[in-house]
Amino acid sequence: MSRTAETIDTAELMYPGHVGCPGCGATIAMKLALRALGEKTMLVIPACCWAIIAGPHPQTSLKVPVLHTAFATAGAAASGLRAALDRQGDTETTVVAWAGDGGTFDIGFQALSGAVERNEDFLYVCYDNEAYMNTGNQRSSATPFGMRTTTTPGTNWKRSRKKNIVEALAAHRIPYAATASIAYPEDLMRKFEKAKAMKGGSRFLHVFATCPTGWRVPSEMCVSIARLAVQTNIFPLYEVEDGNRYTLNFKGEKPVSEYLKPQGRFKHLTQADMKEIQEMVDEDWELLMRKIGLDPCG
């Protein structure tokens, strides 16, 4: 371990006492992100778990300014906030839209797509807990194939694939789009620092954030589950610059069943289902490798 207390900035930009669930992965994501972004940051948070974790009025759990916005508007509000800061001559502050998967993949997609098409100067972060967790676990287009939610219950578990949001954003040819995971803090913080430094255009980070409550895993397994997602290639860590330059950060080697089995949300899956998921993962991996220019088997 090369990491020591001395090498880590000790000032956290988050207060304790927030009302996130025990073991909340999205909270770890914010804590790590703010370590990298620093105090010259303004957040735009639409409806999502973080709308409440950031504090019910009149409380705040963050030491940086937060603009709470409506569900569909993170991309638009962030564009406006950026314009207002520019008008004031403040080019130093980083504007960060911080939205869940519902506010990114579904409800906020139009505003996001519009903003990044204009190449607005902000960092958009989607912390992905793979369903509408704040309202009690309804499926989103980020919900993976095979997951049970309250709107895909029982035998009607979700049978469509998760939307590939990074590819959708990369297709806008924005300067930077990347995935990150709370289980790889050094990699995550490096990407936030990199995105912060790339001023002048749209940057997008897709952060995998375990939801122990909604995924029905023990809270202490939060980080281990996120790590398994990367190690089984179901959530690969990679970066895309200008929509066409791909970099792979980690190559997983474990079978996807190791990731699925410990989670209550996938408990119903049969061997055949898992095999089907493995095939999807392999197919996605092969596609990604082709884009990166690597041999998928190598």
């Binding site: 006492g17 009302v19 409380q59």
Partner: peptide, 17 residues
């Protein structure tokens, strides 16, 4: 626009434990 001026430190979330 309503503004939050106090921190969440008032919440003794340790009682959840």
């Amino acid at each position: 626009i309503s503004q939050s001026k106090i921190s969440t430190e008032a919440n003794q979330t340790g009682t959840w434990r």
